[in-house]
């Protein structure tokens, strides 16, 4: 059943005050709505890609929830974000498809120092271990899966039980924090 707009507005009003239970109920109620819109607009998307966009939309709703005015209807606010993220996703997919090419695994690399400007060249491994240990658990896990174990985003998402979008955010934040920590020492 389609959730009532005024009910969603009430939930968002509560969520803006920090009510986590209402917020979880709101996100749970809008996820199927968003999924339906995505499937209708882009029926050719795989189930996995649909979930990626749904999570992108939920993330966007999360970061701009301050922009919702409870005096106005909730659904147009949500649909504007959904349509925007859907267009962004389509644009991103087209860009990736245009630039991506499948290559065989290359097992040869250049061994000279200049071709390997890694952090290890400048920093003590112990220092790096300390810096890693000081990261929040989510960021550490994202870096371990993506950078150390070399998993793809999708594999890492399955392994960690989180979304591709969330992993990207955590990994980016983790790398930024690591750089900051290592440059401090």
């Amino acid at each position: 059943m389609r959730p009532n707009d005024s009910r969603l507005a009430d939930l968002m009003r509560a969520a803006q005050t920090g009510d986590r239970i209402s917020y979880e109920e709101l996100l749970g109620a809008i996820a199927p709505l968003v999924r339906r819109v995505i499937r209708r607009q882009q029926p050719f998307l795989s189930a996995e890609a649909v979930e990626d966009v749904v999570q992108d939309v939920l993330m966007s709703v999360h970061v701009v929830r301050a922009s919702y005015d409870p005096g106005r209807p909730f659904t147009p606010w949500l649909l504007a974000i959904t349509r925007n993220r859907l267009v962004d996703h389509a644009r991103r997919s087209a860009r990736v498809a245009a630039h991506e090419m499948v290559v065989d695994d290359l097992d040869v690399t250049f061994s000279s120092d200049a071709a390997n400007p890694s952090m290890e060249a400048d920093h003590d491994p112990e220092e790096l271990r300390h810096a890693m240990a000081s990261l929040p658990a989510g960021q550490r896990q994202a870096i371990e899966l993506l950078k150390l174990q070399g998993l793809s985003l999708k594999e890492a998402a399955v392994a960690s039980g989180t979304s591709v979008g969330a992993l990207k955010v955590a990994s980016h934040r983790g790398m930024t924090a690591l750089k900051r920590l290592l440059n401090k020492t």
Binding site: G18, R20, P32, A47, Q55
Partner: peptide, 25 residues
């Protein structure tokens, strides 16, 4: 709803803090 999105919603809800509403334009 897949398990991942359900989990994601839970994480977002856990991260929810009060926000200052944007004033009118």
């Amino acid at each position: 709803m897949t398990r991942n999105t359900t989990q994601f919603i839970r994480e977002l809800a856990q991260a929810a803090t009060p926000v200052r509403r944007l004033p009118a334009p």
